[in-house]
């Protein structure tokens, strides 16, 4: 888990729970330094503020390591803010804030696509390969478009809420905040 900012401990808890559910050994660690990044088998970029996380990933020299490990096939999941950072294209808001995207997935993402916190919502989602999960959307982005090797795994109306490109997974909601570990188990299945 990149632990520069955001709801890191919730994700760490969800990963530990998913590992137990799957009967796997292993544990979740917080990654703040490049050296720790070399030791992990998979990485999650959690929710938080994408502007802040993007700045800190670069200031703490984590961005280059993430790009290299991902190109070597390390499974990588981005949720909410993390989803924005995985995208190749961001909307006007992303450009206006000089957010530096990691640009790993063939998708275009809009930041705060539904509005502010008043428009945050919960909704049941039907996801390919996973099933029904409770989606918690907080000032959520939306995946507007995918192309190339990227394919959608779920939608809510016109927006894509989850997408996968080989070993890369992006979600616009927060699986770490709902009780089900389905999404985390799915991601661990890629390791």
């Amino acid at each position: 888990m990149t632990a520069v900012q955001g709801d890191v401990s919730e994700h760490l808890g969800a990963v530990e729970e998913a590992l137990r559910d799957l009967g796997l050994s292993g544990h979740a660690v917080a990654v703040r330094r490049p050296a720790t990044l070399e030791e992990v088998d998979a990485l999650i970029v959690p929710g938080g503020e994408s502007t802040t996380i993007s700045k800190l990933l670069h200031e703490f020299d984590l961005a280059d390591g993430i790009l290299r490990r991902a190109s070597e096939g390390m499974p990588l999941m981005g949720t909410c803010a993390g989803c924005i950072l995985l995208a190749k294209e961001g909307d006007a808001q992303v450009r206006a804030t000089d957010t530096r995207l990691l640009g790993l997935m063939d998708m275009a993402v809009d930041r705060n696509a539904y509005g502010g916190q008043q428009e945050s919502f919960e909704a049941a989602l039907e996801l390919d390969e996973i099933g029904t999960v409770e989606g918690v959307f907080i000032r959520a982005p939306a995946i507007r478009r995918v192309w190339g090797a990227c394919r959608p795994l779920g939608r809510l109306d016109e927006a894509i809420v989850m997408a996968r490109q080989n070993h890369l997974v992006a979600l616009t909601f927060h699986p770490e905040l709902s009780p089900s570990t389905g999404v985390h188990r799915y991601f661990l299945g890629l390791v």
């Binding site: 632990a3 520069v4 900012q5 955001g6 709801d7 890191v8 401990s9 919730e10 929710g47 938080g48 503020e49 802040t52 909410c80 803010a81 916190q117 008043q118 428009e119 945050s120 919502f121 919960e122 909704a123 918690v136 907080i138 000032r139 927060h174 905040l177 709902s178």
Partner: peptide, 19 residues
């Protein structure tokens, strides 16, 4: 859709952590 639940309110605050 459900709006303004405790989960969403507390979840919003969690996104600020470490900041």
């Amino acid at each position: 859709l459900r709006f303004g639940t405790d989960l969403l309110k507390r979840g919003f605050a969690k996104m600020q952590k470490g900041g």
